[in-house]
Structure formats: structure tokens, C-alpha cells
Amino acid sequence: MTFSHKELNYFPGCSLATTAKENNASLKHFLEQFDIRLTEIPDWNCCGSSSTHSIDSGLALALASRNLFLAPADKPLLIACPGCYLRLGDAKWTLNMNQAKRNKVEKHFGQPFQSDLQLLHFFELLADMSHSGLFKDLPGRLKGLKIASYYGCMLARPPRLNKMPNHYGLIEKTMTALGGDPVQWGFSNTCCGTFLSVSRPLIASNLVNRIMKAAIRSGAECIVTACAMCHLNLEIRCAPENRIPVFHFSEILSLARDGKPSREWLNRHLIDPAPVLKTRWQV
């Protein structure tokens, strides 16, 4: 199988542009090693986030649509944040299914909607890289690191989108292929509490501590997540006694690629990953 995603347009989203810069930097670093070129779409805006779809579906569609209209359709649009992927995917679905709304949006932007614009989930890119044999013989490797793969709600979607490809087990498969040792545990798909972390912190901290405790009980040395929101919640709502390092998927992939953890990324973690990394790598 030949690898087809060498040139991609890229939507980072607010989290990767701000609180999760280490997610953005490690993702770009990792893809650069495989000569995958990303072109950030110019002047992108917030995907709409949970807050607009929670209380204003019209605004959710309007905000997501501007990004869909800004992205050139000549290349797939890579979306690294699962939340953004869901919001943009939902908007694409609505514009393809609801002609009245599509007419209004097309009139607003003064151009036709590119209905075949391909939205590429970071997981789909990874699955493609893996199938194409790009992960064979990586020099870094994960040296048996025990990993709890954490998806949160990122793979759940509404029934209307349930025909889209799913990638359950992708973190485990990739980590195993790269020499890691994923553990079996029961909380990999439990939601982290998202925005309730702000307005109902107790609900979020109860969830987060159940998740972190279960990861520790399973024998994991760290958690790996592909969602910047989950990463933030697990770090900020975790009680001191339940702390184990939480890595962005892209950080661990970069580590497997070249074996050199970047101090710059690690310094942005609230739970210090250095002690775990020092067991196998030079930090």
C-alpha cells in the first residue's frame, strides 16, 4: 500500500494553538520526520466548541462552516483535536443533508460548498501511516513502557455520524507496534468531564480521579491521550495521590520516533513526566 497523505491542510484549533502548544509542536515534529507537510489554513476560527453546540446550534454551524469554506479542497484537511473534528464533521454533514441551510451558508460566503472536502482525523492519518509500513524499524522505540490508552469520549459520536470509520484500539495497536506495552483497563472510554471542570469542578474531579486510580491499579506507568481537553482535565483535576504522567499521543509518537523527549514540551506538563521517562531515556 502506498502512502497517500504527504501534503495536508491543517486545522490546529484553539487548544493546540494555546494551552496544548506541546501537542501541536510534537505533532508537527513527528509528521516532519516522515516528510508529511502541513499547511495551516489561513486565519481559521474556533470550531464552535462544546459551548456553541450546547446552547446555540446556529452559531455552531456558522463558525464551523467558515473553516470548511477557508480550507482548499485540493488536499485533505487534517484535524488534530477530536472536539474540532466532531464539530467540523457535524457541520459538513448538515451542509450536505440540509439544502435550506446550505443555501443560506453558500449565499453568506458567496461561493459553493465543497461537499467532497475530505476531513482527516489524526487517527486516520496514523492508521494510514501504519498500514503503509512507516512505523517499521523506528530507531527510538518505547522500551516496554506500560501505557494506559485513554480515548475519553473522542471516538463516540451521534447516531447520524455512525457510518464514519472508527479507530478503537488504535493507540494500543500503535504503541505495541512501537515497542510499548499497553495495559488492559476499564476506563479508556470514560469522559473526562470536559467543561464541567470549570463550572462543576467536583463532578469532573470525581471522574478524573476514578480514571487516574484505575490507570494506576492496572499497572500503567503513564496515560496516553489523543485529546488536548482530556489532557488538561486529567492534569488539573487529579488529586496529588493519584498523579501519573499524562502524555499527548503525539509526544509519545515523537519519543518512539527519535528517542529524545523535548524538554520544552515536558516543561509544560503539570504532572512531571521526567521521573517515568528517566527510567529508560536521558531527559
Binding site: 494551552t19 476560527n45 464552535g48 466548541s49 446552547i55 464541567l196 463550572s199
Partner: peptide, 21 residues
């Protein structure tokens, strides 16, 4: 409080086009 948080997020998007945490 949940509604208030959503409104603050939407205000931020209105000001900057992105969320300023």
C-alpha cells in the same frame, strides 16, 4: 453556572474568533 460558562466562551469567540482561556 454551566450556562454562564458557555456564554463566556461564546463572548470570547465573538471578541477574538477563538477562545482565550
Amino acid at each position: 453556572a454551566v450556562l454562564s460558562f458557555h456564554q463566556k466562551v461564546i463572548d470570547s469567540i465573538s471578541r477574538y474568533g477563538r477562545t482565550h482561556k
